[in-house]
Structure formats: structure tokens, C-alpha cells
Amino acid sequence: MNLMSQHSSFVDPSNPRGNKVSAFLRTYYIYFVLVLVVTVLSVANLDRFDLFERGNFLNQRNIIHILRISAPLLTLAGAFTLLMVSGYIDLSVGSTMSLSAVVYALLAINGVPFFAAFAITLVVGFGLGAFNGFLVVRLKITPVIATLITLSLYKGIALLLVQDGVSAIKSGGGLKMPEWFNFYGREGVLLGLSSAFWVAVVVTLALVIVQNRSLLGKYAAATGGNPMAAKLSGINTKKTIFSLYAVVGVAAALAGIARSSFMSLGDPLSGDGMELSAILVVLLGGTAFSGGEGRVLRSFIGALIIMALTVGMLTLVPAYYQTLVIGTTLLAAAASNHLVSRKESAQ
């Protein structure tokens, strides 16, 4: 034993202080980006609007507005991160969200009480996610193709659930949305923020705990980081992947409820493009394509950045710049992730 401790050859010879700085940057850069985006948007607004009046980016109403419409993406970010950490992807999240929104609105408009409608929709989301998991794990269809199939399938079902000639489930034709319907996504319950936002916060915190303190979180990282090592350790990687798809399905259903409640209608197209936002958010949060790496909380911050950017931009440039900015940000995030990982592998 003494013989062992005398040697010091195993101490990492590289500069520990430099490593600490770069590790600090890697962990917290996302907060700097958030502050930067908010600052730039606030400053950029100065010449257009009064500093302390309605136009200023950093006013209370604006912040509440952003956080309120962010709820769906914030809800989804954490679960999507865990799935990407395990090395898998779900392109059907947008359609899952749309279908859940339609189901939720249909239930509500037909007189099902809030909690029942809420619970049934979550079960539907679970089922949709589990079906993705089934295609990937059991039928061994490549994740991209499997979830492209369900992207189309779920969207088609959502469209069919809405009557011909109507664009969404909403009041009219003898049926009326109940009074409570938009309470969840709109009304401030705490600090002026909606229930949907607080649910997103709770879901994210729960997933932070899942990532750090549960078998699922650990096995997700192990499966994505080194699948062979995971299998050799006796981890049931199939069960892990399946569970993660189901979790993403439930999160997408929650997101669908939030969006549906906010818009007061069940829109079968409301989730379109959500898979892109989710990928973007997760990339911004530094999640690696190859799996293993990625934090739930950082994706949450990434979602805030995207929403701030989207809303902030609307006050600066016309709405039709949005697709271009999102697309550019996506490429930029992918490229910067690449540069970071290349630097690491070069060490």
C-alpha cells in the first residue's frame, strides 16, 4: 500500500488551472450567451423605444410575455436533451405536440373536466412516444426514419381529428370551449407567470434530478457515451432507449397542452417545426451529436435564448426574418459544437 502512494505518475501532468478555466467556460458559457443576447436586444431597442416604456425589451410585461409563450419549448427541452444524450433523436416531437393539442382541445370541448382531459392527453403522449420507442428498439428502424414516419403519421391523425373545413378545434358549431381552457397557458398564477410556465420549470427540475440522480439519467449517458461498455455492465440499453422515447412523448404532450391552452384552440399544425427548435435548443446547450454529453439545465437556458431571440427580433426586424435567423443560429450552433469537440479531441 505504501508503495502505491509514493508514486505520483498518475497525477495529470497538464496544467490544472488552465483546465479549470476551460471547464468553467464549458459549463457556464450558455449563461453568458443568454446575458449577451438579452443585453444586445435591450441596447438595440434603445433608439426605437423609450427606455422605461412599453417598448423596452427588459420590461416586466415583455419578460412575462416571453416566458409565457416559451412554455412549450421549455417543457420539451429537457426530455429531448436526455434522448440526444443517449445518442438517439426524435423528429416527431412537433407532430406529437400537435396531436396532443388536438386531443386535449377535443376532450375539453366535449365537456371532459380539466384534470381528466390533462391526464388522458398525457397518456396519449406516452403512447405516441412509446410507439416511437417500439419502432426503434423492437423493429430496429433507424431513429431518423422511424420518427420521420411517425412525424407524418401523428400529423395526419391530428389533421383527421379536426373536421373538414375547419382549421382547428375551437368554439363554434354548437360546441364551446370551457371557461377554464386558457387558464393553464395564459393566466398568471405566481409572479404573473402562467401555470404552464411553472409546470415547465417543475418538469425541468425533475429531469435535472433524473439526469443526476436516477438510473435512467445515468444509463442514458452510458448508452450514448459507450454503448459497448453499457452492455457489458449489464445495462438494458433497449429499455433505457424505450423509456426515453416515452418520456419525450409525455413532455411533448405537456407542451401541446400548453400551446393549445395559450391559443385557446386545438391546432393540428401548432407543433410544426418544433423538432427543429428542439434540436436547435439542445445544440445551443452543448449537447454532442454523438451522444453521452449534454445537460438538461443548459438546454433549458438554450430555450430561453431562442425565445428571447425570436421575440426580441420581432421588435427589431419584420417577422419574416425569423426563419432565416433560426436557420443561421442552428448552423452556427452546430459549427461551434464541432469546433469545441475538435479542440477537445486534439488535446
Binding site: L276, T323, L324, I326, G327, L330, L331, A334
Partner: peptide
Amino acid sequence: LGTMMVARGI
């Protein structure tokens, strides 16, 4: 997916 958005965005 990114360039699809960039192209359509332009």
C-alpha cells in the same frame, strides 16, 4: 435541416 431554413428564410 439548417440550410433548409436558411434557404427558405432568405
